[in-house]
Design a protein around this nucleic acid. Sequence first.
DNA 1: CCATCAAGTAACTGTTTAGTTACCGGCTTG
DNA 2: CAAGCCGGTAACTAAACAGTTACTTGATGG
Lengths: 225, 225
Amino acid sequence: MNDSGENGEKKKSRRPSQERTAQRDPERTRAAILEAATREFAENGMGGARVDAIAERAGTNKRMLYHYFGDKEQLYLKVLEEAYVGIRTAERALHIGDRSPEEGIGELALFTWRYFLKHPEFLSLLGTENLHRARWLRQSVRLKELHSHLIGELTDVLNQGKKQGVFIETADPLHVYLTIASLGYFYLSNQYTLSTIFGRDLLEPTHLNAWERHIVHVTLASIKR
Amino acid sequence: MNDSGENGEKKKSRRPSQERTAQRDPERTRAAILEAATREFAENGMGGARVDAIAERAGTNKRMLYHYFGDKEQLYLKVLEEAYVGIRTAERALHIGDRSPEEGIGELALFTWRYFLKHPEFLSLLGTENLHRARWLRQSVRLKELHSHLIGELTDVLNQGKKQGVFIETADPLHVYLTIASLGYFYLSNQYTLSTIFGRDLLEPTHLNAWERHIVHVTLASIKR
DNA sequence: CCATCAAGTAACTGTTTAGTTACCGGCTTG
DNA sequence: CAAGCCGGTAACTAAACAGTTACTTGATGG
């Protein structure tokens, strides 16, 4: 990227020990730890995650992990924050107010379902955090502001639909969002026990597609006049 | 952490054979361990639960725990099995086929929501088991048969409703059950993160009642013609 | 070429944990 | 009453764990 600028980055000029320089990469190490931690926490929960395992997965060691993130709890909070930022950022890009109210809600339902499907680690982290009664999330100032936007946008779309006479007057923005999230979350996060007790693989494409259609159907049926 | 507070009862006096007999109560000890384990596993997950804590909560010690249940994993499986038996037994007593189809489905939705509300430990155990991909549940032969009854009964009620022309033809029994369970499970099991990010206490009676009505409304709206 | 600093390694420490063992005391039965 | 069984206690052990410290290695700058 930056070839000419002298300042800042450690240049590798003098001795062409390029490999050495590439090997030493704080940014990359930090990112690797964060990603490894995301997987480890998602797979094992806060109590089950092992700091040694994270270091190993990241291709580094505990010394660096503690250097960059302080301790296990701070690392966990960072992971959780990043996960929330991820979904809310993608959500914002939807601009559900740009279409008709009905299409807007349908879009949001589809997006949420597909995001959950693509990011099982996000669901798992939510589960872990709730097991601990949002102990770490509550400490995060950064996240609370992220969510007012979502409710605001949903309120606008619902109001527009009510004005047009396509939605019922009692439709509530938080309820609509919770409905969409419920149907996606439960199906995926409980897929293992559900598949076991009902004797069907819920992850089969046929069933996944049927459930996707079901979510949109239920969401709209519950608010249409 | 461990305040060794009251050291009240040491060795009970020697004589009274009645108290001795009452004190020695294998059934009660077993039950106490099972109940203590249910709470401990629900609150801390499989990885976070402590065998010592279970023994202490049960008013006994590890020796007895290992004597009655083998090891931590077997105890956990027993807890999980009992939790499932609990809900499925109560569910059976509903006899949802005795009313009109619409009332039957409404009853099932109400029952499920209220059962979840009353038994947070059941939801938590489900979450833990799914984090581990149903590793222990899959070993349990006992549980699979418990669930065919539920689907069978639901199928009958839906068919009756279709015949009467009140339900749409595409209504699917598993989908209906998953819808009901989703709406209850997500709201309650994720109440801590949701309350935090949306800045509302979801457990307030007003909100609980609103959500109860919402679940029945959504369920019926999604299958009514 | 030596001093310095930053990235990274690996062995170590104190504590916690699941699981075990040695033992106690009363009850039942021969 | 002796033998042993059964419910129960408490101290112990080996392993695992989060977090720390002493050290290595190589780039940079005077």
